[in-house]
Amino acid sequence: MSLRYQKFLLFGDSITEFAFNTRMSEGKGDQFSLGAALVNAYTRKLDIIQRGFSGYNSRWALEVLPHILENEPTDDIVLSTIFFGSNDAVHGGSQKVELPEFTQNITELVRMLKNKGIQPILVGPALHDADKWESVRPDDVATGAVRSNENNKRYSDALQEVARAEEVAFVNLIEAFSNKGGSGWRSLLNDGLHFSGEGYEIFYDELLKTIRATHPEWAPENVAYKYPNWRQVESDGSNLR
């Protein structure tokens, strides 16, 4: 049996970059980790490749993705998230990308992956707690980095339309955070923008639900386990050759 692993690429901004951070909230100890949970779910099945770039938007992502694909064997990558929008949707500052350009950028990213035989999964921005963000990040706010749920929803809806047009999967985090968070949805966010462990757990659940619905062959339970369970290994290891 080959030990060449196929790969699941996580491509996005800071929420992807922090996917393995178990201590997003100071003083609260270890919390749920999206990255660790995916590695656990796909252990001995797929490799999880994290390529998150804090603060990046879809315009800059277009510059980065070709370099990622140049340096990873693309024949091995079977799935990839594209998770941008939280920065694009900012109301001002250098991260802002207007909605028409954002839509075009995401479409190009999707097609770039599809041309390599990689199945894209678009992820929309989640809810935003402006009161908390503006209280803990006054310097960012002073530069124009003001966000809103209204704009996040506009960009999420645009992503959903791209997903429909390009016939790719979509994870609706605004809807998931609203439905699962209820009146306590603010606890899903660490600083008003980035996710707490609870938020990452909802992201994980929604991502796997989407994979099972759209790419069931890549659901963890359907991917072949590399090498037999130790109880099936011959004492001399002869069936491992």
Rank of each mutant, 00 (worst) to 15 (best):
L208D: 01
D157M: 03
P120F: 13
A41Q: 08
A61M: 03
S235N: 14
I202G: 09
H215E: 08
L34W: 03
Y200R: 07
F83D: 14
K132E: 15
D47V: 05
A165E: 14
K96E: 11
S33Y: 04
V39R: 15
A61Y: 02
G184C: 05
V136A: 11
N87F: 01
E98S: 05
A130K: 14
I118Q: 03
A169W: 15
N115H: 15
P220W: 15
D13I: 08
T107I: 14
R186K: 15
G237D: 11
Q31W: 03
D129E: 13
P125S: 02
D88K: 01
L240I: 06
Y204G: 12
E221K: 11
Y225C: 05
F170C: 11
E201V: 01
H194M: 02
T74G: 07
G181E: 01
L122H: 08
I121F: 11
F84L: 13
I15Q: 10
N151R: 15
A89I: 02
V110G: 04
E72D: 01
E72Y: 15
K116A: 04
P73H: 10
Q104H: 03
H215Y: 15
E72Q: 06
G93N: 04
E206P: 09
L69D: 07
Y56S: 00
H194L: 00
D139Q: 07
N222Y: 09
W185Y: 10
T81Y: 07
